[in-house]
Design a binder for these strands. Structure first.
Lengths: 340, 340
DNA sequence: CTGAAAGCGCTTACAG
DNA sequence: CTGAAAGCGCTTACAG
């Protein structure tokens, strides 16, 4: 590497000013077409690398969007991320990703870091217990925030997520229609809007069918495959002998199905199991998982668009945007069969 | 937000110079302890946000490390990423993540973007067909690169990955020791070092046991759960009626087990199946998957350390660093049982 | 121990 | 259509 190529290097080599080079490289019509081509060609030949920090310092725009979710390794967020990535790519923004693992501190560090880098905006699935000041920190420093997947109290920020309460009632109703009368709810935590809403939707569906709501049929907590797997043992030892399980999400449901399989029970035959999200994996699980489509792809795409539009100056409406979930019936649910 | 707080704002409010503020905020011993505290307190009170672009423009160091892999949603890379994240966090570097989906172009765009942002270094699992010029682009612009998971021809870059050939031979030997004589290899592509090495390891193990190598027993291609699931049908219709499958990785193996389950066959009883990687998921699969530990966590940690050490000026040795894989025997393999 | 000044590499009014 | 000059917000020699 001989020497750092910058605008002025190109300018000198061509006998032009840096202003002209700058304009030409950004396709300004202020520069004559042939000059522009000559400049671009020279830049390429010299191996010029645009210095975004310098540009961003001057313009106070960086083209960087931050995304922070609970855990990018969780395919639910992965599918949202993929949609965001697609949308951002098309409008040539870079995105910086981070997990917060539900640590408010880790999330705040990320927001600060993003601010230091001059991030244009942030898309977040807020960590449990996020104080309103932390999102205000972003907004007050001219970095708009959009929420995905989870709602947050005390903010009017644009929020994109599925209608959890409605969605889980679809799954519960499906089990009721198959004749199940003792239905457990496995997983989820009251600390997130998702957990609260899904439990509420399950309760509502039971009530509407005039079925008794037994709080002991709830096994709260599990949110991963591993935890769903372990919850199966707990489920099987429940004195009420439930014949079906409404799982909090697909991961829990898949782990749960593996768990009951260890006890020689088959989902869809011995125990009916529903998931939630309709991950890519749901349809190839054994048995194929009956679940609720939760629109990850749409959530991601709409959130990214909303942010980019906001950055472009349009005034998007704040508040909650709910995606309507849909039932996906497969093999993990079937007619009730009494447990022995 | 009243007004942008910068070093000079703090300096004026305290009757000091920006140089002193700058030094104090970075804990320089050149500033008297009490002045330093006073400055820090004032910065906090005013809501000062450090402008990294300005600093980076001046110092030409950004604290940003790029990481680009095939697909961050793939748990194999996810586990590597998690280890990198942990290491980078501890040494307060930000990391920017990207998928290349084996597109050389997408990978090159990412490298360029990183260069524009002033990235200090890059960790990559090179896309299939990456030309040496693309990594040279990084290196020549003073952004060192470290390779993970895959080797690349024509470079002497530091590379961290498992010993694929040795690892797959462990799995193959395990099946041979259980009495299997017709063993298929499912998945992987000759386009990556991983694919080539694993097939070679399988072939070597068969040869060493004086078993015939039948190229038709290879089902190349699958690298995902979905593809493993589909490959099961192909496997079951093989005229040689293999009794065991060495799968290219855990994802393929899990999909494959689900696939044969649809045909009423149970892994470990009817067909023996081995995976590769030992993902967190392997042990809770049904049945629990016999696989080869591939050290994702170590690969990530060592690669991140090597990069940070290099950035700190130490001269790490280039070349290949192999992690030694280990067998993990679970329930998906068992004594041979002839197929009907 | 603290300050004045230059410079990192861009972009943007402003002239011409 | 092109150029000269200021300035974005830091850090770093260099003085004192």
């Amino acid at each position: 590497m001989a020497q750092k190529i910058k605008l002025s290097t190109i300018a000198e080599s061509l006998g032009l000013s840096t202003a002209t080079i700058s304009l030409a490289l950004r396709d300004s019509p202020l520069v004559a077409a042939d000059t522009r081509e000559r400049i671009k060609e020279q830049a390429r030949a010299m191996g010029y690398i645009y210095n975004r920090r310098a540009a961003s310092l001057r313009t106070s725009r960086s083209g960087i969007v931050g995304v922070v979710v609970h855990d990018i390794m969780n395919p639910f967020y992965g599918e949202i991320l993929k949609a965001i990535e697609g949308e951002l790519d098309r409008r040539s923004h870079t995105f910086i990703l981070s997990n917060h693992y539900d640590s408010v501190e880790k999330q705040r560090n990320f927001i600060e870091m993003l601010l230091q880098l001059g991030g244009d905006g942030v898309i977040m699935s807020p960590a449990i217990g996020t104080p309103p000041e932390d999102v205000a920190l972003a907004e007050n420093n001219n970095m708009p925030a959009i929420l995905v997947a989870r709602s947050m109290e005390g903010t009017a920020l644009p929020t994109y997520r599925g209608d959890d309460s409605y969605g889980i009632s679809l799954a519960t109703n499906h089990l009721i229609s198959l004749g199940h009368r003792t239905i457990a709810m496995v997983g989820g935590t009251d600390q997130t809007s998702t957990g609260r809403d899904r439990y509420q939707g399950y309760v509502n569906a039971l009530r509407k069918a005039n079925m008794e709501v037994d709080p002991d049929l709830r096994i709260p907590g599990p949110r991963s495959k591993q935890a769903g797997f372990e919850a199966a043992m707990q489920f099987l030892s429940l004195p009420q002998k439930p014949t079906a399980a409404v799982c909090w999400n697909d991961l829990v449901a898949i782990g749960f199905m593996n768990g009951i399989a260890r006890a020689g029970l088959i989902a869809g035959q011995d125990i009916s199991v529903t998931g939630y999200d309709d991950l890519e994996e749901a349809s190839i699980a054994t048995p194929a998982l009956t679940t609720v489509w939760n629109g990850q792809e749409e959530v991601g795409r709409l959130a990214a668009r909303a942010l980019l539009d906001k950055l472009a100056g349009s005034h998007e409406p704040d508040g909650l945007h709910l995606i309507k979930p849909e039932m996906r019936i497969r093999q993990s649910t079937g007619p009730v069969r009494p447990r022995t």
